[in-house]
Design a protein around this nucleic acid. Structure first.
Lengths: 357, 357
DNA sequence: CAAAAATATGCAAACGATTGCACAAGAGAT
DNA sequence: ATCTCTTGTGCAATCGTTTGCATATTTTTG
């Protein structure tokens, strides 16, 4: 990249008066012990003096390792991902890896195309945040021997390692919180069921609600097609249109919750006075919105960091196929202002609002 | 990356019965015309049949071009950047480039280190969103012949091409808006003056305010050390502590504005009833915060996209050093709820609040 | 002290693509 | 029909590393 030709192994070798293979070995920690330590010192000095920087392309060509890992996310613009990506990069950079980011926009076809492009570049491994519960392409990749890890989401196939958060515990804490406030009529806006977070959170809801004396009724459940605000709005409208009684809405993630709150507001209902709304993820800024969102905090940066560490392990022990690991990180309930005790006449309020339209 | 050895040029050549150089030429659009079109067809077919994918490392080694560009941002976690990055990636991907992202965390030393790492990887060019007005390292890079472009910010040195937004016009529109609402006592929280956005917005403020009959008083001006919420809070507190009269605060960006609003709230003042606050950038979610922020919308995705296009031009016409371009994209005023007419007794309100502490 | 073993270095062949040059064959000119 | 000029292909070098093997040197050992 610099104008002036970069120093090569050969330059260093000539400057010291040894063969390039000697320089190569002296500069590589793994093989350094083969060389007389005095020569190693000289080589190190000369290399520094000449400003030697190994040529990545030549290294890759010879070894078929690029020291690049691909990071696949639905959309970097979705603010849940940047902290995760940052975690991945922080971890990988420490090991001398660079990361190439691609956006799939949620589609599995585009995901396949992007992964194809990464494979063409010869990435050493893949961190996938866009994965669906069932994703043949990724399974294939893994069985073919490509180091892969999924982050924040996981596949049903336990063969693919993952780092996720404790969805069950998050849902439990949230429902417990709502129940403690006195809510008995709780609706849920479930996320995309083809994605592990959506499915697991919903499953947890179905299992835990009864334990708290809240019997889930199909009329109280609506499934969102996407994890975003407009989908949240649509679902909330659907719920209101059904005319069911409820004092709280449990949303599968923050963006759905934000949309739900907007929809409520448009109907003249205020959160949390009329209905409480909860999120999941604690993404950036949800503490500043109106009302500040009660949600479940996941360790976004750490999820990414740990995933990268695991991938790194996988990449170096390429020979011995390791047991796939699934790491589940703990979560926290963070109570803000989108939840409150139910209004005394909650059901009436909702009905009135609905009839008003 | 795949288990099964990938097909090489040689494989294709053997399969067709020609020399590898012929295959190379046939597959390259630039040299395709040298080969009999019938053979080209055969080669294309064989290449497809064998699933030939060019080996990037070999290509890079031979040509010293990596088809990778480095993207340097302060922190991907700062939500102003993801849309910009996305724009860069969308544009570059169309031309077959991959992007590797690095975070500088604002420090120029770390920026230098990161750029060093990218250079070592042999990136073909650099998109820099972290640039300071004066940045020797980047000037050097450019004069050494590395294609570089700065995005969202620019250097004082007109030699380095850039894509930015029309800061002056943004400030003008905002001040005009405030003036129209009736504000005469306007404070400003200026951003980091070593960064072009901070400096230009402030300069614009100083120039335009008088035109609107608002004489800037040093007592109404405070400089933020960082473009973030806590810095905004500190500045707002400083302003309040000074006891000056004001009914509106013009902030250099959204995050400062958000911090300012928090600080006001902590003093028992409400925005916009007591004081109007304005931002700049229209970053994601500022329409959902409390109160929804009146700000200047910049074309985040487009800024990135255009910058990438320009960089691409630079990279292909590497021979003829092009005239450095500076593209300035138009902005829009978006009025939401953080601005309102000044309270009749505005100055008293502020003074009371201040004395209360 | 000779032979065997260990150690340190050099040699040369890859890795997979691009490209200047040489050469062969066909087209056009005389 | 000979000569020149294109045009299409092959040859071989090259990019900068890594690494198995050979060789030279030193150390150990019986």
């Amino acid at each position: 990249m610099l104008k002036r030709r970069r120093a090569t192994l050969k330059d260093v070798a000539e400057s010291v008066g040894v063969h390039v293979s000697t320089v190569s070995r002296a500069l590589n920690p793994e093989t350094r012990h083969l060389i007389t330590s005095d020569i190693v010192r000289k080589i190190a000095a000369a290399s520094r003096a000449l400003g030697y920087i190994p040529n990545t392309a030549a290294y890759s060509l010879r070894t078929t390792r690029t020291k690049i890992v691909g990071v696949v996310v639905p959309d970097i613009t979705n603010s849940i991902f940047p902290p995760i990506i940052r975690g991945v990069e922080d971890a990988l950079m420490e090991h001398g890896y660079a990361t190439v980011l691609v956006n799939t926009d949620g589609g599995m076809e585009r995901e396949a195309a992007m992964i194809e492009a990464l494979a063409a570049r010869g990435v050493d491994g893949l961190v996938i945040a866009s994965v669906h519960r069932d994703d043949g392409r990724i399974r294939d990749l893994a069985t073919q021997g490509t180091p892969v890890i999924t982050v924040n989401r996981r596949m049903d196939d336990p063969t693919i390692p993952s780092v996720t958060s404790d969805e069950e515990d998050g849902v439990r804490r949230m429902l417990t919180h709502l129940a403690a406030l006195g809510h008995r009529h709780i609706c849920t806006i479930a996320g995309d069921q083809t994605i592990s977070t959506g499915q697991r959170r919903h499953e947890a809801f179905m299992q835990i609600a009864p334990e708290l004396g809240i019997e889930p009724d199909p009329a109280n459940i609506v499934f969102a097609s996407d994890f975003n605000e407009s989908s949240g709005e649509r679902c909330m409208e659907e719920l209101l249109a059904r005319g069911v009684e409820f004092t709280a809405v449990h949303c599968s993630n923050d963006r759905l919750a934000i949309g739900a709150i907007s929809a409520l507001r448009r109907r003249g209902l205020v959160c949390p006075t009329d209905v409480s709304v909860t999120g999941f993820n604690d993404m950036p800024m949800v503490d500043r919105i109106d009302p500040p969102l009660t949600t479940i905090r996941i360790q976004q940066h750490k999820v990414g960091y740990v995933a990268a560490e695991l991938l790194y392990e996988q990449m170096r022990e390429l020979s011995s196929r390791p047991v796939p690991q699934h790491i589940v990180l703990p979560v926290d309930l963070v109570v803000r202002s989108s939840t409150a005790p139910p209004p005394a006449i909650a059901s009436k309020t909702v009905r009135r609002a609905v009839n008003r339209t």
